[in-house]
Write a protein that binds this DNA or RNA. Structure first.
Lengths: 335, 335
DNA sequence: TTGAAAGCGCTAACAC
DNA sequence: GTGTTAGCGCTTTCAA
């Protein structure tokens, strides 16, 4: 590895001269600057990032803690974070908690030793269920800023990025009601999560408002890791009068569509379906699934920007903000 | 941030004593070790990783360069890498090239400045198409080891992890032939890639061997970013005599199944389908898609192990190895 | 215009 | 058993 010292030796100048020259310091003569830069280029010199980090006590690296990268939503958020981070001159270290509290704790601890300048985090399922947030609150005292997204925790004081889940589900449900659907089911495999609860409540409220009662038998909650297809098939066989479905998660909308079709439902004539998804998921079924788009990439971009803003703010203890990213309802084929 | 120095001041001993005590050096008395450790625990002392990295010139961080995290295969490989890396005491910095050569070059360059100890890399589409590999070969000279997986490049000399694509496709095709299928189509949205080419060739060879000629009109290659569903629908309308499909990628199998069903095909009676997928994808359709499983997580685990082995090998220039991870054909519902 | 020296936090060889 | 010192590669103050 080529270092300042080696360049300095070759040029018969001091290390500090080389350093200054490479940084275009006004202290150094043009001539020297050129000589130094030429040699540096010749050896393809890159300043050692670790040394810079130590010196500046700033790593320009962000820790991103995510529950599950196989969930397209999180994968997309990560894409947004990574891309925007790069343009801002940051790298990201990714930790996947696999929805466990222990890995979440460990990841925060392991990276809180100078490895990163801050965190972007979506809480794991286990964290939300167990209501154990000390490891996150504790970060406040280490002056490592945190931005939470999607899986945010009310009790933790930090910048946050969310979508308005409640309103999205309300709008989707009202959509189906407007189509004249009377037996609208709600299907979710994220009933443990805050977002899941909020989405369910929005569904219930909308149904209640229109039909004055909620039929609990039309609510299907599927635990993670259980085979959704079998559950959904049984659910439809038991409730053949269903004429609308609102899905609260990323996968069950597609499965509902295909299962119902297999059972003889015409879509959208007999059954309207809407789920959380994106274009690629929508494209997997015939007809294409109508969906609520969460603008996942935007969420990621907003998160990293909030974080970097805070890193750059002169410690002046800005108020924490919560940014709400707009959602969109897209594609009418299954409505 | 609490440092050795601060601990040393409080304890009225030297920094090196504290350092040695925390590392259980035999030079230090039990009594001191206990005193030091207690104070360290009290302050929740964590050694600064950046300082350690600088001192040891080893970061215990791996750069992972991936074309597209929204592709489930790569997401799964990443899960494998991340988990295994953590057990081995490594962090990973993830870069997503979005299938571009420029981002791939930039990522390698940016991380080759001491940020990481080595790389795990799957080449981008653009890299493979343009046959521009200098940025990868160049790493050899910087003693940063590389392990390539899946999208490997023959001309680059390094450790590699792959599956036997040729054999997998052969086996899948022969499977359909054995079911009596006579008009077997091949569908791929990865025709640009080496793996895509290899899979197509295996299909052709198998068909040729049995039926002595290949009907090129039964081969559908879809460029990335084009809407697969429309293409596949048109393809089936133009070729209603198709009775078998081998899909070379992660998504078209599901789309084929749903499109064909929508056009009136009974599956698997009228049409047998097999694709590259995993359980979750398979589960999205009715009947469930039969699939070739690439054991993506295993690929990731193998890659990080190869890399760490090389990092630990005493520079003795071990031969480069290529590990072939076994694939499996799973689920018979759509066959 | 250039160089010497200190220091970021840590480890390790070498004194004492 | 403990302390001193040097050094990892870099930036930056201060002196020349």
């Amino acid at each position: 590895m080529i270092t300042l010292k080696k360049l300095a030796e070759q040029l018969n100048v001091s290390v500090s001269t080389v350093s200054k020259a490479l940084n275009d310091s006004s202290e150094i003569s043009q001539e020297t600057i050129i000589r130094v830069k030429e040699l540096a280029k010749h050896y393809n010199y890159q300043p050692n990032r670790i040394a810079q980090s130590l010196q500046k006590s700033s790593t320009r690296t962000i820790g991103v803690i995510i529950p599950n990268i196989l969930n397209r939503f999180f994968a997309k958020v990560l894409v947004g974070i990574e891309k925007e981070a790069n343009t801002l001159g940051y790298n990201i270290i990714t930790c996947i908690t696999n929805e466990t509290l222990s890995k979440e704790k460990e990841s925060l601890k392991l990276l809180s030793n100078g490895s990163v300048d801050g965190f972007i985090l979506a809480a794991s399922e286990e964290t939300q269920v167990s209501k154990n947030f000390d490891h996150i609150s504790l970060l406040q005292s280490s002056d490592l800023p945190v931005v939470m997204f999607d899986r945010v925790i009310d009790n933790v004081n930090c910048d946050k990025v969310v979508i308005d889940d409640f309103s999205a589900l309300q709008k989707a449900t009202v959509h189906l009601i407007a189509k004249g659907r009377k037996n609208i089911a709600f299907i979710s495999n994220i009933d443990d999560l805050n977002v899941g609860k909020s989405r369910k409540q929005a569904y219930k409220d909308s149904i209640l408002k229109k039909y004055h009662k909620v039929d609990e038998s039309l609510i299907l909650t599927i635990p993670r890791k259980v085979n959704s297809q079998d559950r959904i098939k049984a659910f439809f066989k038991a409730n053949p009068h269903i004429d609308g479905v609102v899905s609260a998660d990323n996968t069950s909308g597609t499965i509902v569509l295909n299962v119902a079709k297999d059972l003889g439902f015409k879509i959208p004539e007999d059954l309207s379906i809407i789920g959380f998804a994106d274009e690629a998921i929508s494209n997997l079924s015939v007809p294409r699934l109508s969906y609520i788009s969460q603008n996942a990439k935007q969420i990621g971009i907003a998160a990293i920007n909030l974080l970097v803003d805070r890193l750059n703010s002169e410690e002046e203890k800005k108020e924490f903000t919560t940014r709400v990213i707009p959602y969109k309802i897209k594609n009418q084929e299954s409505l």
